[in-house]
Design a protein around this nucleic acid. Structure first.
Lengths: 239, 239
DNA sequence: GAGTGGTCTAGACCACGGG
DNA sequence: CCGTGGTCTAGACCACTCT
């Protein structure tokens, strides 16, 4: 498991990392092509790629398909215990958030949703898919389910802002409890395509269930984040 | 970015995933060697490895260095808002937790620790490194700093159980607030070696700062988890 | 159309493990 | 010791983006 003097890909990794640290390549900038990086060191292209994968796993660089490797910008901090939405906390950190609504449709409750929402199978629900970007880079894709009975006509609204505030201001539906599950995952076919990354890239899966004061589920949200785009921070006090 | 009918490594991935799902290989069991898997499908070994990396990123399999590929057991659920320690929540989920203390030494406060603990540079601190296992597999390594003034002689105790309960019962030091930061990371040289995995494997970095009722830092803890070993779950209520 | 990364081949040698 | 995964080479073709 140890890198002795062999493991030249770690040497290549260190070279590239040093050049980034030295400011030769800045966040958002493109690295030289794999074949150019290879030429410098007299190594096979596969070895250069191994080094690039290492840096990608560390969150130092990322790739745009068939366009090249780029230096990663710093991650944003996400606090699941706060109610402010994506748009506000990203902006508060001096970054530029964007939201794109990929689709919004009415569906009917299947068995799994029936259980989550405590609603009968067949009850109408809204299904919203959105992609969110920071500084122009797609960082997460989310799939939201909302009980149509709680927010009739929801999908007629503009959903490129804060969904929570639409629910609150238009429908008077407030959130009193929030359950968040997180786990490292691999971005699979669909998520990877929507984020325009290679399938199999590590990510963070985040599942949020929002309840109102009566304990009814208001919103059920699955998010898939690029692994290098966020830090999660939770601050808890004993009651 | 899309898998058409080419991308045969995804086909190999699906084959292996199907055999695992069908129960041909059970959690904890070893897969056939790469060269054996290769023989079945008439593909190059590199292609088989690509498929195995994919499954590893998804948390389906993991490797033991130069020993082989194994089917992953299910992850444990970790709730940073609960105070119960590793030993109890792992056991509560029907798994077998173990802790090994790798080292415990007295150190002096450097600049960073001085800031975290609001203590003068040079103040004595204890530094404890532990490795924790579930069902015999190393899943995390942690590095803990405790203010020696708050718990004199702490490192004389057996630290293979719950540190929090030792602090509470022996020293009367309770925790009133908990700050947890999490982010996907790559396991680098030291962590990877301690977990006996390949450097560069994705992981989850978890930094916990524990405060007492007076707002003093009691314990500062950095954990590095295998990415496939846990799910984080947070349940928050508005007050 | 040129250049990029993505995939794949068919070999090779090495370091480490105890299937 | 033999088999394993870990690393590496030197090519090749493809699908895609547009540097």
């Amino acid at each position: 498991m140890q890198q002795l003097d062999s493991h030249q890909y770690l040497g290549v990794r260190d070279d590239i990392a040093a050049r980034i640290a030295a400011g030769e390549f800045k966040p958002g900038e493109r690295l030289p092509s794999e074949r150019q990086l290879q030429a410098g060191g007299g190594v096979a292209r596969g070895t250069v790629r191994e080094a690039l994968f290492q840096l990608e796993a560390e969150g130092v660089i990322y790739r745009k398909d068939r366009s090249g490797w780029y230096v990663s910008p710093p991650p944003v901090v996400y606090d699941p215990t706060r109610w402010e939405g994506f748009m506000s906390y990203v902006e508060a950190q001096g970054r530029r958030p964007e939201t794109e609504t990929l689709s919004k449709v009415e569906i009917v409750c299947d068995g799994m949703l029936a259980q989550i929402f405590s609603r009968p199978v067949g009850a109408p629900m809204y299904w919203i898919r959105r992609r969110r970007l920071i500084d122009g880079r797609a960082v997460l894709i989310e799939s939201i389910i909302v009980d149509a009975a709680r927010a009739p006509g929801l999908i007629e609204h503009d959903l490129n802002g804060s969904l929570t505030s639409v629910l609150k201001t238009v429908y008077g539906v407030g959130v009193a409890r929030n359950k968040v599950d997180m786990r490292p995952c691999a971005l699979t076919r669909d998520e990877a395509e929507a984020l325009r990354v290679k399938s199999g890239l590590p990510g963070l899966s985040l599942v949020r269930t929002c309840y109102d004061a009566q304990g009814h589920v208001v919103e059920f949200d699955r998010e898939y984040w690029r692994h290098d785009a966020l830090t999660v921070s939770v601050d808890i006090r004993v009651r």
